[in-house]
């Protein structure tokens, strides 16, 4: 994943409820109600994932106690366990799975990981189905419930299917030469002296 991956950046914008576990120097600006340059122990702030991530990577100890976001809380996870295929993940968090993966790499949680993996497994079969059988051009109705990772998967399947159908109808696209292939001038430059010519008698 590249540094400038827009999905990655948007995903890490998601804020998590945090409680400062020590007095943090020069971080008073994070809490609008704080009058001092210090972030007092016990004050509650919502911090984006990228900030929490870089804190944890830079400092060994935990400055913040981090709670999972609403959509990774017990109530939402119960809904996922009940039937993952009917849930509109886009409304929970548009980068649900990428977020869950990053969150889990920071805060290991075996149960949560299993739930997320199972949910994706169930939803994957639905995506497989709809991406291979998308007849009409408007796919917005079908992708409404999918998060960004699933949408990419859906569009990959759709492109495969479209290309295949196009080929079956023999509406071929133009095959372009490899950029490093010898150019036509090569003949004139004398590397290749004779051009093959079809002649019949």
């Amino acid at each position: 994943m590249s540094y400038f991956d827009i999905d990655d950046i948007l995903m890490q914008e998601e804020r998590l409820p945090c409680v400062a576990s020590i007095d943090v120097i020069k971080m008073g600006s994070l809490d609008p109600s704080s009058a001092t340059p210090y972030l007092r122990k016990g004050s509650k702030v919502d911090l984006p994932l990228w900030l929490i991530k870089s804190y944890r990577e830079k400092n060994g100890e935990d400055i913040f106690e981090v709670d999972p976001p609403k959509f990774l809380g017990p109530k939402y996870l119960d809904m996922l366990r009940a039937d993952a295929t009917v849930i509109n993940l886009q409304s929970w968090c548009s980068h649900f799975f990428s977020f869950a993966i990053t969150y889990l790499t920071l805060f290991q949680d075996g149960d949560l990981a299993t739930t997320i993996q199972d949910s994706f497994g169930h939803r994957y079969l639905v995506i497989l189905d709809i991406s291979q059988n998308a007849v009409q051009d408007d796919t917005s109705e079908k992708t409404r419930n999918l998060d960004q990772l699933e949408r990419q998967l859906f569009h990959a399947g759709l492109q495969d299917d479209r290309a295949q159908q196009q080929w079956r109808r023999r509406q071929a696209h133009r095959i372009l030469p490899w950029a490093g292939a010898p150019r036509r001038d090569a003949f004139e430059l004398g590397h290749l002296t004779k051009r093959p010519k079809l002649s019949f008698s």
Partner: peptide
């Protein structure tokens, strides 16, 4: 293989990322 390549690659990638946590 060509008819499923992009989908399979994306799916493999997603499962791989999910199972690494």
């Amino acid at each position: 293989i060509t008819s499923i390549r992009q989908f399979a690659c994306h799916a493999m990638d997603a499962f791989n990322r999910l199972s690494s946590v």
